[in-house]
Nucleic acid binder design. Structure first.
Lengths: 387, 387
DNA sequence: AAAACTTAGTTAATTAAATTAATAAAGATA
DNA sequence: TATCTTTATTAATTTAATTAACTAAGTTTT
């Protein structure tokens, strides 16, 4: 929207109020006015609009503090729904979610490697189609479709420029899906979508500089500054899997040596285990390393602790570069968190530059678990609504 | 300013117009309206205000394109002055500059190691005092004082929390200097100030994600996203000198092993030269390495090229984490740019993830040279004026 | 229990500042 | 000279916030 116009000013105020309501759970008009600095009549009139738009509802009366009881306002969680799709390299998963991340239905289809553009888009639209079946009567309540996909995305056009895993190039996701379903579509890189998901659905937005680091088959991260995802110049921020933490070592799939990825992904853990443990199985998997560690096998525990240390080094690098308030860890590898987290924490404590960083940087494992990506995709739409 | 008010809306438009004038050199009201989307009457009335405030002037008439000639507007560069101070660990340098970075006068005082808070503040105010002597009659034309200082700064209170080099802790710079001179004071970390300086005075602001990397006695960086310096949670962003690029190696002053700093600072270059070159002088300095390389000494050239490669690795790490449009290199070490830059470029080309990154990430050496820090300090005030 | 005070929220009048429409200024073109 | 273009300003209008007054619904004091 054109900045500096009346409409824009109003939308800024509306957004402020809507967010205040969302983040406080329930709040009176008077308190909104106090906390946002917007005057009471303006609050009243905008709240009226928000109620007309089905975004906000009056819930109950609050406690009096010496005068008239406040009418508390709440977000009308199920006033609208969004569709979130996680387009992975093995499966495409989709959900219908409401404004606060409650999931109402799920679908999933498998995709095969060497899939073509057309097949991929067909599978994607199949997932959306299935999710929408229950909502044909209420299409006006569907805000839109968010798609999270690995690789480099052009967010403006909603095109997947290229993804290493599935080998797809220049897939016009937004254009295609918008045409089929006549709904707004937003496409984002999966790490960034995850970051948004965690930020929206588990966060009190108190953190101005927020990060998710995803450690699975690769390592990626997303960064939110001032409530906005940082995209960088070519939309490749957060490729911290290809930050080099060693001058020697294995060659990475990207061609370089010493990439963070070559030390901490599931495959890397397996490789290291095989190298260090004499009687390791030929078909060892990362899941099995975890299982064996849980059974108390010392060598496997040690492998995971070592992995934790390496993850810690990568995180410290990130902290020293960006200094986020909070770092959330997610991804398959983090399922071994009971073994990883202590050594991650220890490494960070040892290596971080200042006491303040040590004490104040929050490190957590994602609370959304496997749903982080689909919910992140859904959050893409909410981000438009609320900001 | 409170968001969503009339005043705020106006100030946003005013800022947009002022910047449009600054960045285009000279432009007509009509073109401002076209390019900003603000309506002509609004442009006219705001321009009138800007002229009253001595920030903008009418220059000459432009070419007609089939109608009335446009009256071109320009920034009134010398309408205001700012003071920029570079509080280093060896000297405190200060300048008086105008709105576009022209320097009108300079001062410099030495500071001794083990300086006390009081002595430091006295030296600092001495520098400012000397700079102000010529301007006593026109104090209203001085916008304020910017101070760039190494170490961790609390930007809100303008306090130097702690600086490793000079050992100072909790120095209330803003509070003290504002009291003495009755002028607005802004304090910022030196790397970030440098970034702002380069951004303001050499940049067309076309870059949305802009970085300066400073390689001198330490390594620091600053990052501008959406025209704003990124500060991070504890104000320690950009400490890329303490990003670990090796799992083994020398111990850094920070206690860790493998820090980027231990490979690429002046001291690191000297250490590596001594280690690799049999007949190296006992008192070798980084300057001398450069001199010897310029004289064609193969071994010293190789040392610098190796340094370039290591700098390249650090830069690639930064690119993969943040993906800036443009990286400007500054600092003492970059005086050897003729030897460093080619191998930096080569390393980046080899190691960067995608073709787009390779082709589109701009790497340059600072055009402001040694003035980058004082001008950056000055830019702190302009940043307030223009945004 | 009535009066006085508090807090919440709305209504009406006012104001800031952008927008629209009309017009003037100054030149180009036919 | 008449007409058309582009630039810029003026006057009238509109948007949406602000201020002030007021109603609603309590609590506290007397």
């Amino acid at each position: 929207m054109q900045r500096g116009t009346f409409k824009w000013m109003k939308s800024v105020n509306k957004t402020m109020i809507l967010n205040k309501i969302r983040l406080s759970g329930s709040i009176s008009r008077a308190d909104i006015a106090k906390e946002t600095g917007i005057t009471p009549p303006t609050v009243s009139s905008i709240v009226k609009e928000l109620m007309d738009e089905n975004l906000v509802k009056e819930s109950h009366l609050g406690q009096s503090t010496g005068g008239r009881k406040p009418t508390l306002l709440q977000l009308k969680e199920d006033g609208y729904y969004v569709i979130g799709v996680d387009a992975g390299s093995k499966t495409i998963k989709g959900v219908v979610s409401d404004l606060v991340g409650n999931i109402y239905s799920r679908t999933e289809v498998e995709v095969y490697s060497n899939i073509t553009k057309e097949e991929f888009l067909k599978s994607l639209s199949m997932v959306v189609e299935q999710l929408l079946t229950g909502y044909k009567q209420h299409m006006d309540k569907i805000l839109g479709i968010g798609v999270a996909m690995h690789g480099v995305i052009d967010v403006e056009t909603g095109t997947s420029l290229h993804s290493v895993n599935s080998g797809l190039i220049n897939v016009p996701i937004k254009q295609t899906i918008e045409k089929i379903f006549d709904l707004p579509v937003m496409v984002e890189n999966n790490s960034r979508a995850m970051t948004l998901g965690e930020y929206w659905f588990t966060n009190d937005n108190a953190y101005n500089c927020f990060t998710v680091i995803n450690i699975g088959r690769g390592v990626g991260s997303g960064l939110i500054v001032d409530n906005k995802l940082v995209h960088g110049a070519q939309g490749v921020t957060g490729e911290i899997g290809h930050v080099s933490i060693s001058l020697d070592g294995e060659r990475c799939s990207c061609g370089n040596i010493g990439c963070f990825e070559t030390f901490v992904t599931g495959d890397a853990i397996v490789r290291r285990a095989k190298r260090c443990i004499a009687n390791a199985s030929e078909n060892l998997t990362a899941e099995e390393v975890y299982r064996l560690a849980k059974r108390g096998k010392r060598e496997y525990i040690q492998i995971l602790e070592e992995t934790g240390k390496l993850i810690g080094i990568g995180i410290v690098n990130f902290i020293h570069t960006v200094n986020p308030d909070k770092i959330v860890l997610s991804g398959g590898v983090m399922k071994s968190k009971e073994f990883l987290l202590p050594s991650i924490q220890k490494t960070i404590h040892e290596r971080v530059l200042t006491d303040k960083l040590r004490l104040e940087t929050i490190i957590e494992v994602s609370k959304l678990g496997d749903d982080i990506t689909v919910l992140g995709a859904a959050a893409l739409l909410l981000n438009e609504l609320f900001y």
